[in-house]
């Protein structure tokens, strides 16, 4: 169990907005939709939810290791385990990159979890760049005491 944590990389991915960008522009999921020119596939009623941090990965085990519930997941993977992973972590928003669209079954499951799901035509790399530019930062990695950073 993680009890005592030290946070890695806050200088680049926790806070530390670039000069002239001190105000966090990215406040809600609705802001993300605008920045990514995204199409919302379900959960329109939750677009006013605040956005905390972001994680981009196709490896669900990495997501399970490092992500908390205030994190938006950006992924190119469209299989049911993305939604299941979101369920385990109580995530609130999924972004599918490169125009990928999950199946109807996945969307139904996402709806039952009150998830916002959107798709953007941007690549995962560009989507992350746009969100970063708008002030969103990566999830700070929590290293349990005794584990060394690479």
């Amino acid at each position: 169990m993680i009890r005592s944590l030290k946070t890695a990389g806050t200088a680049i991915n926790g806070q530390g907005l670039s000069p002239g960008n001190e105000e966090l522009l990215m406040k809600t999921i609705a802001d993300m939709v605008k920045v990514l020119h995204a199409r919302v596939l379900c959960g329109e009623e939750y677009l006013d939810r605040p956005v905390g941090t972001a994680c981009c990965s196709d490896l669900m085990s990495d997501v399970l290791a490092f992500v908390n519930e205030k994190t938006v997941l950006i992924t190119g993977l469209t299989n049911p385990h993305v939604v299941r992973t979101a369920d385990m972590l109580d995530l609130k928003c999924l972004v599918f990159a490169r125009g990928k669209i999950p199946t109807a079954e996945m969307l139904a499951q996402a709806q039952s979890q009150d998830l916002v799901v959107m798709t953007t035509r941007e690549t995962a790399f560009t989507a992350c760049g746009l969100l970063y530019e708008a002030g969103l930062r990566g999830v700070p990695i929590e290293w349990p005491e005794g584990e060394e950073e690479a």
Partner: peptide, 14 residues
């Protein structure tokens, strides 16, 4: 499926 990152057992222990 998005697995096989080699994080399973360490994640459990953590």
């Amino acid at each position: 499926q998005g697995f096989g990152a080699g994080m399973g057992l360490p994640n459990m222990k953590r």
